[in-house]
């Protein structure tokens, strides 16, 4: 019998596991209570979502892995991931899920949670600022083009005031650092 076998005590291993008890076991409940999270738990990890996704090969976490991470409570990893922001929102994963898990919608939920915690890519903050300030993402700059086509130079009926009013009271205001 070799020395190694005679040793007692805990076995030696290089594995450094994730301690599940340190994860946020409430996270899946949070997601489930969100607008499209109800079917979350129906996931049986078949990976159809990942198969359907046109860009997941670019990702460190695949869609099915993100759902698993939600189920396991890996809240921080999910909310700080670049993947949720890169989601094309093309809904192909959601369309094909055999268990009707609303995968794309759940990623929307995750983005909202991330936004609440201030984890938003800069360019998206830029868009939010546009919206908060101008009430629209695109404004007419070349009105001669419109006129050439017989359109009114100013868009009929356009008024961004309503939107600006609304966004002053919601999270967007917080995101763009507006006054509360």
């Amino acid at each position: 019998m070799s020395d190694a076998e005679e040793q007692t005590g805990p076995p030696i291993t290089l594995v450094e596991p994730i301690d599940v008890s340190k994860l946020d076991s409430e996270f899946r409940k949070t997601i489930r209570s969100m607008p499209n999270g109800e079917e979350l738990m129906a996931c049986f990890a078949c990976s159809t979502c990942t198969a359907a996704c046109p860009i997941a090969n670019q990702w460190d976490y695949k869609p099915h892995q993100l759902i698993r991470m939600i189920l396991l409570g890996m809240r921080d990893d999910v909310l700080s991931s670049k993947e949720i922001w890169e989601c094309l929102t093309c809904f192909q994963c959601q369309e094909r899920c055999p268990q009707k898990v609303r995968v794309t919608d759940i990623f929307f939920d995750c983005k909202n949670l991330a936004a609440e915690e201030g984890m938003i890519p800069d360019n998206i903050i830029g868009l939010a600022r546009e919206l908060a300030e101008k009430g629209q993402l695109y404004v007419v700059t070349a009105d001669w083009e419109r006129e050439d086509l017989g359109l009114e130079p100013e868009v009929p009926g356009l008024s961004a005031n309503g939107i600006r009013e609304i966004l002053k009271t919601t999270r967007t205001n917080k995101i763009v650092g507006g006054e509360s």
Binding site: F108, N112, L127, A128, L131, G135, L137, Y138, G162, I163
Partner: peptide, 12 residues
């Protein structure tokens, strides 16, 4: 005016 697009849906 604008509908906010998916970007607004994502954050707010």
């Amino acid at each position: 005016a604008c509908c906010g697009s998916p970007n607004l849906r994502a954050i707010d």
